[in-house]
Amino acid sequence: MSFSVPASLEAELDELTTHYPVKRSASLMFLHALQEHFGYISKDAVEWTARKLGLQPINVYELVTFYPMFRQEPLGKTHIKVCRTLSCSLAGSAELRERFCTRLGLDPHAHAAQTTPDGQFTVEFVECLASCGTAPVVLVNEDLHHKVGTAEADAILKQGQKA
């Protein structure tokens, strides 16, 4: 399948470019928008961004490999980010992540992001999500879930099965 950016998205990105006196500044915003649309950043997306912003592909690719939020492969429809850092860890985030993994048949001890074979879920440990007062927190796609106990964890999984 050839890579094609819908005209409406391209127009949106062209407008975004006008926010900056230097086009290169729009790189991160381009990558966010392309990742949201395609689910990940492909080699084509890198080259397309570079062409649009008058850059070399390496200028864009080095961002994809530096910033933890960018992905080079498709992820699950429900992306579960469990906060790993101190306050959430004190509140049991390691056990919480293990529960997600075990229930989904993923390796509870592997550290990196894991996706279920059916493409429904990705479970990942991430660093501080800046909501330490309601630990442990879990970011499910765009929604932050607070004080996540076992019941809420299971509800997140149930919801994700329907996605």
């Binding site: 926010h19 500044s25 991160l28 915003m29 966010h32 530096f66 960018f70 991430v126 660093e127």
Partner: peptide, 12 residues
């Protein structure tokens, strides 16, 4: 004056 929102991507 113009103000724009710019999103980071997960780097502390």
């Amino acid at each position: 004056l113009e103000i724009h929102v710019h999103r980071g991507a997960g780097a502390y």
